[in-house]
């Protein structure tokens, strides 16, 4: 058996989160999420948390495990020796209930960066694709791997201190389209702002937290370079197009 110290917050009942201990079987193939499901199914039906695919692709089950933002479906009980294991909601977000946090703010930010393919002029007919070489695909592929699990926001101290900061996943998503050879959009006004890339102080923890190796820190720093060059070009009389 191993002890899970689970953060409980029941609105209307708890003024602030409290910890509750549960003993769950310590099995070599159980993830933290399996431990939580065991609690829910057999010990205490009132514990609330989100989960779905339990294969690290739906992005639902992000929580703080022993202080680190983790996908609980891919974090195993045996990684923590004898325990106890402390399970808390993702930091940096309002807590709705127990381990469930409010992510609507980030969702709005994702939508804000125009995360869709922007084309000018006539669309191709539905008989032909835009060509894109494997190298062109490779240029943005990594940034298209984000599962919106919110771990990067949870790891980012800037987002915790400045809620207006656009944040890692949203900027990486913008870069996913900026670097797509098929995209003709311009997201400069959305990204080159104090709340955008310039808000990032480059702590780098978003990248460490990312379970899908998206490397949002890299996306942000690369856009800083793009934004700086664009700004300089815009200042030059012959630079404006």
């Amino acid at each position: 058996m191993i002890t899970l110290q689970v953060s409980r917050y029941r609105p209307g009942q708890d003024a602030e989160p409290v910890f509750q201990d549960y003993e769950v079987p310590l099995r070599s193939d159980w993830a933290v999420l399996d431990g939580l499901a065991h609690i829910k199914d057999h010990l205490d039906g009132t514990l609330s948390f989100r989960w779905s695919c339990r294969m690290g692709i739906c992005g639902s089950c992000g929580m703080t495990v022993n202080g680190e933002p983790r996908l609980t479906c891919g974090t195993f009980l045996t990684d923590y020796g004898e325990g106890p294991i402390r399970v808390e909601p993702l930091r940096g977000f309002p807590v709705i209930r127990d381990l469930v946090v409010d992510i609507d703010d980030v969702l709005a930010k994702l939508a804000h960066v125009k995360p869709w393919l922007i084309r000018e002029g006539e669309e191709l007919p539905l008989t032909a694709e835009y060509t894109q070489t494997p190298a062109q695909l490779e240029a943005y592929k990594q940034y298209s791997m984000c599962i919106n699990c919110m771990l990067c926001y949870s790891a980012c101290p800037v987002y915790a201190l400045e809620p207006d900061f656009l944040g890692p996943a949203a900027i990486a998503l913008a870069q996913r389209y900026n670097l797509d050879s098929r995209d003709q959009g311009d997201r400069f006004d959305l990204l080159a702002t104090d709340e955008g890339v310039w808000g990032c102080t480059f702590v780098g923890e978003c990248t460490s937290a990312c379970p899908k190796h998206v490397d949002p820190a890299e996306a942000i720093q690369r856009y800083k370079l793009t934004a700086a060059l664009t700004s300089v070009r815009n200042l030059l009389p012959w630079g404006r197009s």
């Binding site: 869709w116 539905l126 694709e129 894109q132 070489t133 062109q136």
Partner: peptide
């Protein structure tokens, strides 16, 4: 056309 990153042949 909406941007799905389909895998590609060398010719694109």
């Amino acid at each position: 056309h909406w941007g799905c990153p389909w895998s590609r042949e060398p010719d694109g």
